[in-house]
Design a protein around this nucleic acid. Structure first.
Lengths: 217, 217
DNA sequence: CAGTATCCTTCCAGATACTG
DNA sequence: CAGTATCTGGAAGGATACTG
């Protein structure tokens, strides 16, 4: 006998959303999956503080609800969790929440966790599509994580891995520094002067990338 | 001795947002305030199931955090809660969540609550700004609630009350019907034939309004 | 590695009573 | 009207141990 989940009992889009993803940890699990499929233990490692039972619980519910699917790698025996199309549909909402949060974030506390993976989402949240000017790529190397931003035909996308060819700009930094910059707590200039941020590339590309991410003008 | 609220301890925009508005009921309170200032008892009435202590708790926290402010009406003694500029900043995120939720909503259960006020937010969530063609107004009369949509210079806004002049279209319906249409569970045509929806106005205006709300191709 | 199972704590719903 | 204060059972969350 499966007990009923707590729900708001309101016929309203927002309440309906919160009935599904409003519980503690759920949206953070979705944040992880929005940047690519994950294994169970990866999720556990990137969500410090979540209990293993709770993670299993949430994944089971999200799978039943159709937001997440479990893919078994052929050959290898690792199991991957990934978003379904419906789950992917939450991207805009998650980005909007993250965008607001970046604006209210203060300086990181000593005990705050940070993961390089989260900077991918921060970049997506910061992008101002109307500032996409020149078709080019920017590569980011944040701690161990490598990802790149592609501008093409006025559209901007963010993906794992190295840029396809030679990027117009390569940014080296650590996760805390990047999020501090995104939160407006640290200027790219200051970060550069303290060697917490290193940019390789053309000065014009640096400017375009900064505008794209809302860091100037 | 005020105990520490539970928070995720992650230096991340999304986690920061959820630390503030991720608790149960909080975003629904903000939904109410996004459609205009409210009195305490109005909130209580439009959030069936919330305990009065919990509402007081949330309002206090949101006030301390700077998302909500309490305005005392001069003359009258009623106290109104309203969003600060920071709280208003959540509008896009809330709309994005509501938009996703509209897509997954099923047919209303008999015990589901519905409030005419919520349809204002549904309209905002449904609006496709790129479909704003002609400058005009549409008036909605949903149960007791009257509000209007204004299209001007390609921008769309939703506000309480009657249209400024003669609207190009007036829509009469009830809240359940409207949300069902927004959720794609009911076509405007079907609702019209069953007299659950009545539209007064020019046929072309009906079409433009439908396109604006994403109800036709 | 990918989860169950268990136990304990905290939070929430709902009722009710009380205050300015 | 606009809250605050208190109480209770039950559900959700957290920590840890354990298993296929």
């Amino acid at each position: 006998m499966k007990q009923q989940r707590r729900n708001y009992g309101q016929y309203c889009g927002l309440a309906g959303t919160l009935d599904i993803v409003g519980e503690r940890w759920t949206l953070l699990i979705i944040r992880e999956l929005l940047t690519g499929p994950c294994r169970y233990n990866e999720l556990l490692a990137n969500l410090p503080g979540i209990g293993t039972n709770l993670l299993a619980d949430r994944l089971k519910f999200l799978t039943e609800t159709g937001l997440v699917r479990q893919r078994r790698q052929e050959g290898a025996k690792i199991r991957l969790y990934e978003l379904t199309e419906q789950g992917e549909g939450l991207r805009e909402a998650v980005l909007a929440l993250a965008r607001w949060g970046l604006g209210v974030l203060s300086t990181p506390a000593a005990e705050d966790a940070v993961r390089p993976r989260w900077t991918m989402l921060a970049v997506e949240a910061m992008v101002d599509p109307s500032a996409a000017e020149v078709d080019e790529q920017y590569e980011f190397r944040v701690d161990g994580e490598v990802f790149h931003v592609t501008v093409r035909d006025g559209r901007v996308s963010v993906a794992h891995g190295k840029a396809d060819g030679e990027p117009a700009l390569t940014v080296h930094t650590d996760a805390v520094t990047f999020v501090e910059i995104g939160a407006g707590r640290l200027s790219p200039l200051e970060a550069t002067l303290t060697k917490r941020l290193v940019m390789e590339g053309d000065g014009e590309a640096v400017l375009r990338c900064s505008r794209l991410l809302g860091l100037v003008g």
